[in-house]
């Protein structure tokens, strides 16, 4: 998988967090893994098909997730924000991936995204396919988000 994909997702994440939640992100680390297994308790999984195929798996902790929702819903009470927290992080992940897909698709290719699936809670066991993965950690003043990019291009790893 091309490392340049990482730069596309880094740029998208920075832009989307700033515009949607007024949160500044910066890159903390980049490692390679064998599968897009998330390491934080709240995970959002999107499938990708088309000229690129695979998954993008985001993860963050519950406090950061709540903070993101609160930033996106400044006029709502805490109880309503809590109800919409999973939807907020799911939508942020959707928008980041959508933005990245514009750059990845270029002029002529097409990439489709699946609706995001959110998993949250400690001790959950989810199996992921073994696909070479680039795992990014992006940091802000209020938390960390991990982005696991497991994409293959035209069947090539």
């Amino acid at each position: 998988m091309k490392v340049e994909f990482a730069n596309i997702f880094i740029r998208s994440a920075i832009e989307v967090f700033q515009k949607e939640a007024n949160i500044s992100l910066s890159r903390q680390s980049l490692v390679k893994k064998n599968a897009p297994i998330p390491s934080l308790p709240v995970s959002i999984v999107l499938g990708i098909t088309g000229y690129l195929r695979g998954q993008v798996v985001y993860s963050l902790d519950e406090n950061f997730a709540y903070s993101v929702a609160r930033a996106m819903l400044p006029n709502k009470l805490p109880a309503e924000i809590r109800k919409l927290t999973n939807s907020a992080v799911s939508e942020i992940a959707n928008i980041i991936t959508g933005q990245a897909s514009i750059a990845l698709a270029g002029e002529k290719m097409k990439i489709d995204l699946t609706p995001p699936a959110v998993f949250s809670g400690e001790g959950m066991l989810v199996d992921f396919l073994s696909i070479p993965t680039i795992s990014l950690r992006m940091i802000s003043e209020i938390g960390v988000i991990e982005i696991n990019i497991a994409l293959t291009e035209d069947g090539v790893g």
Binding site: N94, G98, Q99, A105, E107, K110, I111, L113
Partner: peptide
């Protein structure tokens, strides 16, 4: 109103 803003779409 969508996140998927690729030119073809």
């Amino acid at each position: 109103v969508s996140a998927v803003g690729q030119k073809q779409i």
